[in-house]
Amino acid sequence: MNRIATVDALNRRNIGVGSSACGLCEEDEESVEHLFTSCYFASMLWTLISNWCKCLPMVVFSFRGLIEIHNHVGLDGKKKKVLKGLVRIGCWSIWKMRNNARFENKEVKLEYIFGEVKKIGFLWFKSRNKNVETTWVDWCKFVNL
Score class of each variant (00 low, 15 high):
residue 91 C to W: 05
residue 140 C to G: 10
residue 16 G to S: 12
residue 65 G to H: 03
residue 12 R to D: 00
residue 52 W to E: 01
residue 105 N to C: 13
residue 87 V to I: 14
residue 90 G to F: 00
residue 90 G to H: 00
residue 2 N to G: 14
residue 11 N to E: 04
residue 98 R to H: 08
residue 104 E to D: 14
residue 34 H to Y: 11
residue 29 E to V: 11
residue 90 G to C: 07
residue 60 V to C: 01
residue 118 K to V: 06
residue 37 T to E: 03
residue 27 E to P: 00
residue 33 E to Y: 00
residue 30 E to P: 11
residue 122 F to M: 12
residue 52 W to I: 04
residue 31 S to K: 09
residue 44 M to S: 08
residue 108 V to I: 10
residue 49 I to F: 05
residue 109 K to F: 05
residue 113 I to N: 08
residue 89 I to M: 07
residue 60 V to D: 02
residue 73 V to D: 00
residue 17 V to M: 12
residue 137 V to A: 14
residue 130 K to M: 14
residue 65 G to Q: 05
residue 61 F to N: 03
residue 93 S to G: 06
residue 42 A to Q: 06
residue 29 E to T: 07
residue 89 I to Y: 08
residue 93 S to I: 04
residue 135 T to R: 09
residue 132 V to S: 11
residue 24 L to K: 07
residue 93 S to K: 02
residue 77 G to H: 03
residue 44 M to Q: 12
residue 122 F to P: 02
residue 93 S to D: 04
residue 103 F to R: 01
residue 48 L to A: 07
residue 45 L to M: 12
residue 96 K to R: 13
residue 8 D to W: 01
residue 99 N to M: 08
residue 1 M to G: 03
residue 106 K to H: 07
residue 116 E to P: 04
residue 62 S to T: 15
residue 137 V to K: 15
residue 132 V to E: 15
residue 26 E to R: 15
residue 134 T to I: 15
residue 67 I to K: 09
residue 103 F to W: 15
residue 7 V to H: 01
residue 136 W to G: 08
residue 145 L to W: 07
residue 100 N to I: 06
residue 26 E to C: 11
residue 35 L to S: 06
residue 81 K to Q: 09
residue 137 V to W: 13
residue 21 A to N: 13
residue 101 A to N: 07
residue 80 K to F: 01
residue 86 L to P: 05
residue 32 V to W: 02
residue 100 N to L: 14
residue 138 D to R: 13
residue 52 W to S: 02
residue 102 R to G: 02
residue 10 L to M: 14
residue 63 F to D: 04
residue 88 R to M: 05
residue 94 I to D: 00
residue 5 A to W: 09
residue 7 V to A: 09
residue 133 E to H: 14
residue 21 A to M: 13
residue 115 G to V: 02
residue 110 L to Y: 03
residue 127 S to Q: 15
residue 48 L to G: 00
residue 36 F to D: 08
residue 11 N to S: 10
residue 113 I to R: 11
residue 111 E to A: 10
residue 63 F to I: 04
residue 62 S to H: 05
residue 88 R to F: 06
residue 12 R to V: 00
residue 23 G to I: 08
residue 75 L to P: 06
residue 12 R to P: 02
residue 55 C to G: 04
residue 143 V to K: 15
residue 120 I to R: 12
residue 119 K to Q: 14
residue 88 R to L: 12
residue 30 E to H: 13
residue 142 F to M: 10
residue 125 F to L: 04
residue 135 T to P: 08
residue 98 R to W: 09
residue 139 W to P: 03
residue 6 T to Q: 06
residue 17 V to L: 11
residue 78 K to A: 05
residue 86 L to I: 10
residue 114 F to R: 13
residue 119 K to D: 10
residue 84 K to T: 02
residue 26 E to P: 01
residue 107 E to C: 12
residue 43 S to C: 05
residue 59 V to T: 05
residue 56 L to Y: 06
